[in-house]
């Protein structure tokens, strides 16, 4: 009798343990992708389409991994350095490129990403195409929760502040913003730099649980993925990109039984969202539709 009850308890803990063992990487990845989604959100919030965040993530990942591996730096310090390094790079490349707008900025930042990837491939300190093997496993769940919590808190504070309003003004009408006396390039560079910092920290956290990093993780494809998080989720509030990244990271797991076709599901969902919710999952339309459905007239539009 006693044995049986203990057995039951163990059964539950076993279940949790086995769930955690199967899905911990997925859960970690959801957090990292959430941070990446926030990193592009801040540039989109001032109307800038920057595709450099995968490269910034890479710079952060290599910086922090090398610091812990080669110099035995404390984890916290290497994470901060992993954010500062891409932020410094962003500051330097942001000043000339953020005078560009729209698709030209997107192209310039994509080109920058390619330069960074090739640099990772060819430098000896980054381990070339083999990448870095044996990055110490230091990232724990509470680190991720704490860090994303700080970033979310920052964005909430931003909303009713001078800086937040300036970014919104630039987003709505850059010409008018400049006529209001706003140094638009200055604030765009700041948004870009903060985005690079967030992406770099995400890269550092990611490197310290995947054990292994290589240049291909920071190329064109992840750059587009990050943008997709934001577009799918919607960019009106910070919750949009977070929702987008969570959905797009979880779905391939749920549709694992579809085998190689599971990535097509992501594509399909993206297509449906763009068609029916052009402002993303977290948008006014969605709330209106949900209300309508509860009021009994469940039609879109």
């Amino acid at each position: 009798m006693e044995k049986f009850q203990r057995g039951k308890g163990n059964g539950l803990t076993d279940l949790i343990t086995s769930f955690w063992q199967t899905y911990n990487t997925l859960i970690y990845t959801i957090f990292v992708h959430g941070m990446l989604a926030l990193s592009i959100y801040i540039t989109l919030a001032c109307g800038q389409l920057s595709l450099g965040n995968a490269a910034f993530m890479g710079i952060g990942a290599y910086t922090s991994a090398l610091l812990t591996m080669k110099m035995n730096a404390p984890f916290g310090l290497s994470l901060i350095a992993g954010g500062m390094m891409p932020a410094a790079v962003a500051l330097i490349i942001g000043i000339p490129t953020l005078r560009l707008s729209g698709v030209y900025l997107a192209m310039a930042t994509l080109g920058f990403g390619e330069v960074v990837r090739v640099a990772f491939l060819n430098m000896s300190i980054t381990g070339g195409s083999l990448g870095l093997n044996g990055v110490p496993l230091k990232t724990e769940l509470w680190h991720l929760v704490l860090v994303i919590g700080i970033f979310i808190y920052f964005f909430i504070r931003l909303r009713d502040s001078r800086f937040g309003r300036i970014l919104e003004a630039i987003n709505e009408d850059e010409v008018v913003a400049s006529v209001m006396g706003i140094k638009t390039t200055y604030f765009k560079v700041w948004a870009f730099t903060i985005g690079a910092f967030i992406a770099g920290v995400a890269g550092g956290l990611n490197a310290h649980f995947t054990f292994f990093i290589s240049p291909r993780e920071y190329g064109f494809e992840p750059a587009v993925d990050i943008l997709t998080f934001a577009i799918l989720g919607g960019t009106r509030t910070l919750w949009g990109p977070l929702a987008g990244s969570t959905v797009l990271t979880t779905l391939p797991e749920l549709f694992r039984f579809l085998g190689p076709y599971r990535l097509a599901v992501n594509g399909l969902i993206l297509l449906l969202v763009v068609l029916y919710l052009p402002n993303g999952i977290v948008s006014k339309e969605t709330f209106k539709n949900i209300k309508k459905i509860f009021n009994g007239s469940g039609c879109l539009n």
């Binding site: 309003r165 003004a169 709505e172 009408d173 008018v176 209001m180």
Partner: peptide, 17 residues
């Protein structure tokens, strides 16, 4: 050319930045 998605008050606050 007002900032359409902002409230009137926020429009003014941008001017006062």
């Amino acid at each position: 050319r007002v900032f359409e998605d902002m409230s009137l008050l926020e429009n003014i606050l941008v001017g006062m930045h």
